[in-house]
Design a protein around this nucleic acid. Structure first.
Lengths: 136, 136
DNA sequence: CTGTGTGCAAACACTTTGCAGGTGT
DNA sequence: ACACCTGCAAAGTGTTTGCACACAG
């Protein structure tokens, strides 16, 4: 049984060829993938609509999460353990490289930020842009 | 001469009724506006296409900047002095309220974040979500 | 007067929905 | 066997483009 197949069952999802293909793409690439990336790398036998539906399903089951860059381009990335359902943590840090264009999750803490009185914080999302290790 | 008219001239833009109307919307509301917000509050005499083009122009001239929330919804907000052309600064903090849905710019500093070796940082964008002062 | 802005229509890209048939368990 | 996935076609939504006319400077 392949890793992607196992993951699907863990999340109570039927293991179909399409889902396995998309999931193993995420496992193979380490950075966030856009819908376009997925279509480009996926066997073209799969319908665009299936990709949309699969991503939505994965999103609902907490297998992946949305990653947005400064231009509003939407990508998706695998959720880490820390990110998954029960003890969901509420800080996300993403790094987008100006050279290779790849966006990936960073496992770092966001220091406390001083806000004016009266603001309640429930979630923080930090997007850092620059040049990644590979491209330096 | 109205404030919005002056601002347009400062940015070398012709002062037309449509531009003034949109710009004064930004001056009146203090939070970020989506395209939809603008259409809703603008005199309906203005064409949707004009709004698109006007926003793009304002963006290019540095009158407004993009504001994105966690869902990828795009809004626009006036640039502060600090944000404008010459000594552009490279940190942005936005706060989105879960109750009223409004997003606004905060003038706070982002503390340094520790990154792994080899990463070069050029810009940081922090989105904080929670409940704003008005809604507490 | 000249170059730029605007409105309208149409093109375009992206995403969702309905339905019939196929597939995993 | 049944519920759920998938592909296809079509509808829906948001954004851009081409062109003729209007307007600011």
């Amino acid at each position: 049984m392949t890793p992607s197949c196992e993951m699907l069952k863990e999340h109570d999802l039927r293991s179909t060829p399409g889902r396995q293909a998309i999931l193993s793409l995420f496992l193979r690439k380490k950075h966030a993938l856009s819908h376009g990336d997925i279509e480009r790398w996926l066997d073209p036998q799969y319908d665009r609509v299936t990709v949309y539906r699969t991503l939505r399903t994965f999103l609902k089951r907490g297998i992946i999460h949305k990653v947005l860059d400064d231009e509003g381009d939407l990508k998706y990335a695998l959720c880490s353990e820390a990110c998954s359902s029960s003890h969901h943590h509420h800080d996300h840090v993403h790094f987008k490289c100006r050279k290779c264009g790849e966006t990936s999750c960073l496992e770092v803490e966001i220091p406390a930020v001083k806000l004016p009185r009266g603001y309640l914080v429930s979630e923080r999302n930090l997007l850092i842009q620059g040049v990644c290790r590979k491209c330096t």
